[in-house]
């Protein structure tokens, strides 16, 4: 199977099951991109998430564009991006057309009720895997705690927190 086809199928799967927002999708991307296909290293994946966090657009789309480029250049990035939104857009379109019927479909609601608590587990799994690869020493623990308290207690904007953590990185790892 060619690289482009593999890329297309992996991101088609990721898009089709991306319930629960950007962070829940990270668990799927980790599985497909890092563990099953070995396209990028766990460390590089976190860099991509950080970049995605600071740029406009959904995390799933941003990371598929980035990973696609890594695997197969500009063609790869276009294919991965197209694949990740293909199923969601198709389903949304079908629902838009049959909206009045869909609105009253209680079965959909039942399924969603089951998926909702699973989303917590997916995000927790992604978080632990990312922590495992990114917090390598006591300095990392300090930075993570500072950022968590900063956004929780001081309500710092996440983008500002990321920039600040970059400065802390230079101080902790470059200067000290």
């Amino acid at each position: 199977m060619t690289a482009l086809l593999k890329l297309f199928l992996a991101f088609l799967k990721i898009g089709a099951f991306s319930f629960g927002g950007g962070y829940a999708v990270l668990a799927l991307i980790q599985k497909e991109v890092i563990e099953n296909n070995g396209w990028i290293l766990p460390k590089d994946f976190i860099d991509i998430v950080a970049v995605a966090e600071m740029t406009p657009g959904p995390i799933a789309v941003n990371s598929s564009t980035f990973v696609g480029y890594r695997v197969a250049g500009i063609a790869g990035s276009a294919i991965a991006t197209f694949a990740v939104v293909l199923v969601p857009i198709t389903i949304t379109l079908i629902v838009s057309v049959y909206y009045n019927k869909f609105k009253h479909l209680k079965q959909v609601n039942w399924v969603i009720k089951g998926i909702r608590p699973a989303v917590l587990g997916l995000i927790a799994a992604a978080c632990i895997k990312i922590a495992w690869a990114s917090i390598v020493d006591i300095k990392g623990i300090i930075i993570a705690l500072m950022v968590f308290l900063g956004i929780y207690k001081l309500k710092i904007n996440p983008i500002i927190a990321i920039i600040a953590s970059g400065v802390l990185g230079v101080i902790f790892y470059g200067v000290i």
Partner: peptide
């Protein structure tokens, strides 16, 4: 160095 600092921050954002 910048990314060594940013990576733990990503963990904190997801945890939050």
């Amino acid at each position: 160095y910048v990314f060594s600092g940013i990576r733990p921050a990503v963990v904190a954002l997801i945890a939050y």
